[in-house]
Design a protein around this nucleic acid. Structure first.
Lengths: 137, 137
DNA sequence: GGACAAATGGACGTCTATATCCAGATAAGC
DNA sequence: GCTTATCTGGATATAGACGTCCATTTGTCC
């Protein structure tokens, strides 16, 4: 469905949503349980995609660019690895129109996009009774 | 969303749906535009999963086990590579309950399963006006 | 039983996702 | 300007997905 890397990116973003000051790769890695070396690469990707802003040197780290109530899950997914759509038949058949097979596949992808496009990061943090992401409680 | 191998499996199954006699790997490969050597592996998988039945020797090949109006897209997907669900939090947090992040991911997976579970192979072949899968028209 | 057709299984090759490690660049604080 | 903290970029390693190839097994037809 979504790759391991995308899952990592979502965890990191959820963590950053609550933080005011920049958080280092090491700090993010610890809370999110992501291999620190690999997280560095993931964060670079998010940085280039404009999801986070990085600051080097002492007291540096990463902050979200957008507010968490504007940033959607879909934006994060698209920054890492967009969901595969079917703009046309992979076999190059029936012109621009899709056959029912690939139409169905595309339709499912669309559904997923819609679902994630409607969910902001804040939606997943402001939960009434406990069970916040990354938290034990 | 779904892997290349799963897409291959779906193409092969769609092709077999219309055929009464067994079709060889070579015949399937040609119509579906799948590398013949790799298709052989895919077909073995479908065979072991009980989606197709194989017959060796002259006039051998593959046939669907179930009728195409009973066989769903989901069954084929599950035979090759099931859609990843989230029975529990990957971080091992909050007991059996899912946090909103993984709940959302699982919900999307569920949606996709539902969509594909409701679609039979026949649904994709009996189309009123043209654009059948694997066909030019 | 012999000739041929076709699936099966194993060995192997390649590419990408995942992951590690480290030298270099850059920023802050003194 | 020096030291320290931190991101950046490149090289490298590993596993799995995708793909090829071939010898073997199993089946049909004569």
């Amino acid at each position: 469905m979504i790759s391991q890397t995308t899952e990592y990116a979502l965890r990191a973003v959820v963590f950053l949503a609550d933080e005011k000051e920049p958080r280092t790769t090491a700090a993010i890695a610890e809370v999110t349980q992501i291999p620190v070396g690999y997280l560095a690469k993931v964060m670079q990707g998010l940085s280039k995609a404009g999801i986070v802003r990085s600051r080097r040197g002492l007291h540096g780290g990463f902050v979200l660019v957008e507010s968490s109530d504007v940033l959607t899950v879909l934006k994060v997914i698209n920054a890492v690895e967009p969901i595969r759509r079917y703009p046309e038949c992979p076999l190059g058949l029936h012109g621009k129109q899709l056959c029912p097979l690939h139409s169905k596949l595309d339709q499912a992808a669309q559904q997923v996009e819609d679902t994630f496009g409607d969910t902001t990061i804040r939606d997943m943090i402001d939960v009434p009774q406990s069970r916040r992401p990354l938290c034990q409680k």
